[in-house]
């Protein structure tokens, strides 16, 4: 899986996810959040045809349903009263708030589903190695150790099973105990190995100079352009939000949902930010189709 978005510089991708995450928590106008959710679903579809998204759909829908249904009943703030339930008022405000809140959470989770696919492992750490090099290095090492340790755990568990200790049978106490024995074997084995690893690192010159990244990402001019565009649009959104655009008053009394001209400017800025992966992919798609059309066209022309 390698699409146009993934080839972007990690900084651009990081800024994109930060912007989407911030705006998802920032605006509370239903239109803004609803459109944001749709755009992010489309973004997820372009990654892997929604394979990762599908796994989350049950959880997302249950969460939404719970928040929207439960909020009006545990919260009786607001003035537009639908009906009374056991002496407590069920209000329009609380219902709308539940909807807004669930959309905001869904948007954040959709962002993280895309994030886990696109800005995974190496790229994410590349971003952080600029600010916190040693912490990023430590994290990177720990991530690399996880598959190694999993393999060792299997190996140790196999040996322990032959000896009659298994985490799959027995009382909870016994299972927890044999699980911990496995973990203790892992501890001594791996710590000894860690010392060897660090000595070999030292022998190869760790700590002499600045660490260089494994994959050297370079910012192309076009990517700098995207960085600036995203930053400017984010700024418009933040300033607009500061002045109250893109937001509605829910409590104590529902304000107007009407959009003013400046609301539309903020809305379009947000839309462009969130649709950034779609723009990239769309451009690639156009290029591909256009070049195919052109080559087939020229081929047919040469043939005739």
């Amino acid at each position: 899986m390698s699409n146009g978005l993934e080839r972007m510089h990690p900084f651009v991708l990081f800024l994109y996810y930060v912007a989407v995450g911030v705006l998802a928590m920032y605006f509370n106008h239903p239109l803004f959040l609803g459109v944001g959710c749709i755009v992010l679903i489309l973004v997820n579809l372009t990654h892997d045809n929604g394979k990762a998204l599908k796994k989350w759909i049950p959880m997302l829908s249950v969460m939404c349903a719970v928040i929207i249904l439960v909020n009006p009943f545990i919260n009786s703030r607001g003035t537009h009263i639908f009906f009374y339930f056991r002496g407590k008022q069920v209000t329009l405000e609380a219902t709308l708030y539940g909807a807004v809140l669930s959309m905001s959470l869904v948007l954040i989770l959709l962002m993280f589903i895309s994030f886990n696919l696109i800005l995974n492992g190496n790229k994410f750490l590349f971003v952080f190695s600029r600010f916190l090099p040693r912490t990023a290095f430590l994290t990177m090492l720990a991530i690399r150790f996880v598959p190694l340790l999993n393999r060792r755990l299997d190996e140790i568990a196999d040996v322990q099973r032959v000896k009659g200790l298994s985490i799959k049978t027995g009382t909870i106490r016994q299972r927890a105990k044999s699980g911990m024995v496995i973990l203790q074997v892992l501890l001594t084995w791996s710590l000894e190995e860690a010392i060897e690893t660090s000595d070999s690192m030292k022998a190869r010159g760790y700590g002499i100079g600045k660490r260089s990244p494994y994959i050297p990402y370079r910012l192309a001019r076009q990517e700098v352009g995207w960085l600036v565009t995203l930053a400017v649009l984010l700024l418009i959104c933040l300033v607009g939000g500061l002045l109250g655009y893109g937001k509605i008053i829910i409590y104590p009394q529902l304000g107007t949902l009407q959009l003013y001209p400046i609301d539309w400017i903020v809305f379009i800025s947000m839309l462009v930010i969130m649709a950034f992966p779609l723009l990239i992919e769309g451009r690639e798609l156009l290029k591909w189709n256009y070049s195919l059309w052109k080559t087939s066209h020229s081929n047919s022309r040469t043939r005739t």
């Binding site: 994290t139 090492l141 150790f145 996880v146 860690a194 690893t197 660090s198």
Partner: peptide
């Protein structure tokens, strides 16, 4: 030193695993 960093990384990985 490098030893401490690798050791901490290993312990964090064990805690996670």
């Amino acid at each position: 030193g490098g030893r401490e960093i690798v050791m901490l990384a290993m312990l964090a990985a064990i805690a996670a695993v």
